[in-house]
Computed example of a mutant assay.
Amino acid sequence: MIIFISGIRGILLNRRNILVMSMSIESMLLAVNSNFLVFSVSSDDTMGQSFALSVPTVAAAESAIGLAIFIITFRVWGLLL
């Protein structure tokens, strides 16, 4: 819960810095993923483990979209070849 709250805090306090917002979203996904695994083990159910396998897919898609936004922004500004 502490990792998730720190991710929310990072988003709310740093709205102008996209890199910090992306890292905050990644930490929130990490917190949710660890909660899925802990509750799955404690309840003897494999559903949480299967959800935990799908969370990195969402994180990878979010990182790819963020990288694409950075590249397009730098091309528009003329800073990237």
Rank of each mutant, 00 (worst) to 15 (best):
S24V: 15
I3H: 00
F4Y: 11
V41G: 11
V20L: 14
G78T: 07
R15F: 13
V38Q: 09
Q49L: 14
R75N: 07
I3P: 00
T57D: 00
W77D: 00
F74D: 13
L19Q: 13
F70V: 14
R75V: 01
V20Y: 14
I69A: 08
G66Y: 08
S40P: 01
L37F: 08
F39K: 00
M23P: 05
I25D: 11
S34Q: 10
I8P: 00
M28I: 15
S22P: 07
F51M: 11
P56C: 12
V55T: 15
L19K: 07
S42L: 15
L30A: 14
F39L: 09
R15Y: 09
V41C: 08
I3Y: 03
I72Y: 08
A52S: 15
A31Q: 06
I11V: 15
E26K: 00
S54I: 07
S40F: 04
M23F: 14
L79R: 07
A68C: 05
M23K: 04
L19Y: 14
S40K: 01
G10D: 02
R15P: 07
E26Y: 07
R16Y: 05
L12V: 15
T46E: 13
L30W: 07
G78Y: 07
I8A: 11
L67I: 15
R16I: 01
I5M: 09
R75F: 03
R15I: 10
D45Q: 06
L81C: 03
F4L: 11
A60N: 03
A52N: 06
S54A: 11
I5L: 14
L13C: 08
L79G: 00
I65S: 02
D44I: 09
M23T: 09
I71S: 09
L80P: 06
G7V: 12
Q49H: 05
I2R: 14
S54R: 00
I72A: 03
G78P: 04
L67P: 00
E26W: 03
V38N: 06
L12S: 13
D45S: 12
V32Q: 04
E26T: 11
L53A: 11
L12K: 08
D44Y: 07
N33Y: 03
S63V: 07
A61Y: 12
I18F: 12
T46I: 13
D44E: 09
I11N: 13
A68T: 10
M47D: 10
M21Q: 13
L12Q: 10
W77R: 10
S40I: 05
G66Q: 01
I5N: 02
A59H: 01
F4E: 13
N17E: 02
R15H: 12
G7N: 02
I8L: 14
S27E: 11
F4G: 09
A31P: 11
E62Y: 09
L81K: 08
F4C: 02
I25V: 15
I65G: 01
I25P: 08
N14I: 02
I11R: 12
A68I: 10
V38L: 14
V58D: 01
I11Y: 14
L30K: 04
I72D: 02
N33I: 13
L12T: 14
V41Y: 10
S24N: 05
V20W: 08
I71Q: 06
S24D: 04
T73V: 02
F74G: 12
N17A: 09
L80N: 03
S42I: 15
Q49C: 06
G78N: 04
L67E: 01
